[in-house]
């Protein structure tokens, strides 16, 4: 029995490091890291700036099994430079998705009992502020490479995203997370493009008071993202909760997984435009204004309730498509 794996399952996901998350999201003893710390492929750009590099460049990538599916796992480490995407970090992410596609092609090329072997899935744990400024240009380009790889994976390899770390998912990685097939968040997780601190700095405190933690969480936190359906699931902040949800989703047929997407087709653009309309002309001042519009009455109760109560009682954006209101 894998004691370390068992121990990790009951830990808060948010407190684990990227390697522990990658290891424990997979079935026991199934995770093999690629380009791990032993290869010491550190960023050559950081030392001249006086910044100590890290052996994995802030992201753990590896192969494992999730439930019955072979999986490629990407897990960002927010402790190192805020999870910022630099050159090596970015290329590791891009390669992970390309290799998942190759793995799937190999599975498909084996005629015999291909379905019983499962379908390769990509699992990405986002914990990042986006581009690493010390390697800004390479980081930016890596985002475009990841988005392209996502599009290449469409309908072939499902991409399951997780946002449950202490930094959350901001900057360019915000739209990468929005482009996955299924997104799972916890209460700790936050998702956005421009971080609260940046809005405050660029526009002013009257636009966004970044010191107001409650405001930050109700604007970017998992509960709000669940209500607007940007997050498909909200789970408890435990390793086990994330792992079970990922394994469940990975077992779905690819069509069902793809139906959870929020962007990526012309119809979805028009659908999202309806949500945007609700906010035009300053009609929305606060995320809770939206919650009310979707029929949530006792918002304080929803906010304070535990995750399962919240999930059961929250009224989500009626996306407008049949079968989406479950």
């Amino acid at each position: 029995m894998d004691d370390r794996w068992n121990l990790l399952q009951n830990q808060p996901f948010s407190r684990l490091n990227a390697r522990e998350r990658a290891y424990a999201i997979c079935n026991p003893e199934s995770f093999t890291e690629l380009l791990g710390p032993r290869l010491k492929l550190t960023s050559p750009h950081l030392p001249p700036m006086g910044q100590t590099p890290q052996f994995d460049d802030g992201v753990v990538v590896g192969l494992g099994t999730v439930g019955k599916a072979p999986a490629v796992v990407v897990s960002q480490e927010s402790k190192f430079l805020g999870g910022g995407v630099g050159e090596a970090h970015g290329t590791k992410m891009v390669m992970a998705i390309r290799l998942a596609l190759r793995g799937q092609e190999i599975l498909e090329s084996r005629s015999k009992s291909s379905e019983s072997r499962g379908r390769v899935a990509v699992v990405i744990s986002f914990d990042t502020g986006g581009v690493r400024l010390q390697e800004a240009n390479a980081g930016l380009l890596a985002h475009s490479e990841v988005m392209d790889a996502f599009q290449a994976a469409r309908g072939k390899v499902p991409i399951i995203g997780i946002v449950g770390g202490t930094v959350g998912c901001f900057g360019g990685m915000g739209f990468v997370a929005a482009s996955v097939d299924v997104l799972i968040m916890s209460d700790v997780g936050r998702l956005g493009l421009t971080g609260p601190g940046v809005i405050e700095e660029v526009v002013g405190t009257e636009e966004f008071d970044a010191a107001n933690r409650a405001l930050v969480w109700r604007t970017t936190g998992g509960r709000h993202r669940f209500i607007t359906r940007d997050a498909d699931f909200i789970v408890e902040d435990t390793m086990k909760a994330f792992r079970e949800k990922v394994a469940e989703v990975a077992s779905w047929p690819i069509e069902k997984i793809a139906s959870k997407r929020i962007i990526g087709t012309g119809e979805m653009v028009l659908e999202q435009m309806r949500l945007v309309d609700l906010a035009a002309n300053d009609r929305i001042q606060d995320s809770w204004d939206l919650w009310r519009q979707f029929g949530n009455e006792d918002i304080e109760y929803l906010w304070d309730s535990n995750v399962s109560e919240f999930e059961a009682n929250a009224r989500r954006w009626p996306r407008g498509r049949v079968g989406d209101n479950d």
Binding site: G36, P37, R38, K40, Q54, F55, E77, K79, F80
Partner: peptide, 17 residues
């Protein structure tokens, strides 16, 4: 091999081979 810690302000990572 053994790997411990993180590179962050006031901290370090150790790799033993």
């Amino acid at each position: 091999y053994i790997h411990i810690g993180h590179v962050m302000s006031g901290d370090l990572e150790i790799l033993a081979e």
